[in-house]
Computed example of a mutant assay.
Amino acid sequence: MIQFVLLISRQGKVRLTKWYSPYTQKERSKVIRELSGVILTRGPKLCNFVEWRGQKVVYKRYASLYFCMCTDQDDNELEVLEIIHHFVEILDRYFGSVCELDLIFNFHKAYYVLDEILIAGELQESSKKTVARLIAAQDSLVETAKEQASSISNIIAQATK
């Protein structure tokens, strides 16, 4: 089971966090501080697995972001690397060559993609087409809601004149 997911920039800024195990806010801050220090200082030729507090942290760097997932000790590291790559491929397909700014300004969409892939720390959807279809449906719902809100606000504005 995946305990948590972190996306950290090369400068140590947290871009996305998703916690599947209960951590207090103080513990979360400490975990982020510790792991960003460990991962950012590792050389590029070292392996992408780190033993940490009796758990395994699997990470992969894509451009200026480190995608990190903390798993149980007995989980398969290569499977977690594949989950990270799967997540990045879907983000890449959705945003069209995803970059750090896409995640900063559209973090809610990145969370939605992650929620479609992982539920309670377990892989739920491995099909990129299915995830893309679900995201497109969500985007159309959001657009419909915006249009309805806009038309309602126009009606209210006309009624109050």
Rank of each mutant, 00 (worst) to 15 (best):
E122Y: 05
L141P: 04
Y94W: 13
V131C: 07
G43R: 13
A159D: 12
S126M: 11
F95D: 04
D115K: 03
D75A: 13
L114M: 11
S150L: 09
A120R: 04
Q3R: 08
V58S: 04
V14T: 06
K26G: 15
R10L: 15
R93L: 10
D72I: 10
F95K: 06
V57C: 07
S140A: 15
D74G: 13
T24Q: 09
A132D: 10
E89P: 07
E122D: 09
Y59Q: 01
S151Y: 10
R33E: 15
P44R: 13
C47E: 12
T160N: 12
I135H: 04
I83F: 06
M69C: 00
V113Y: 03
P22N: 14
I156P: 02
L101K: 05
L7Q: 04
C68P: 02
S126F: 13
I156E: 05
L78P: 05
H86I: 06
M69H: 00
F49R: 05
K109F: 09
A136E: 15
E34H: 01
S140Y: 10
L16A: 02
A145M: 12
D72V: 13
K161M: 13
E122T: 06
I8N: 00
A136K: 14
H108G: 07
S140P: 07
E89V: 08
E89G: 07
Y66P: 07
A63N: 09
L101W: 10
N154A: 13
A110G: 08
F49V: 12
W19T: 05
N48Q: 11
K146Y: 10
E34K: 00
T130S: 11
K109G: 01
I32K: 01
K18A: 00
R15D: 14
V57S: 01
D75N: 12
A149I: 03
D72L: 12
T24N: 11
I135A: 08
A145N: 10
L16N: 01
D102S: 03
S127T: 11
I84G: 00
W52G: 03
D115Y: 03
V113I: 15
L7G: 02
L35A: 00
E147G: 05
I155S: 09
S127A: 11
S36P: 03
N48E: 11
I152R: 03
S151I: 14
N76E: 05
L118I: 07
A145G: 10
F95T: 04
K128Q: 09
T71Y: 01
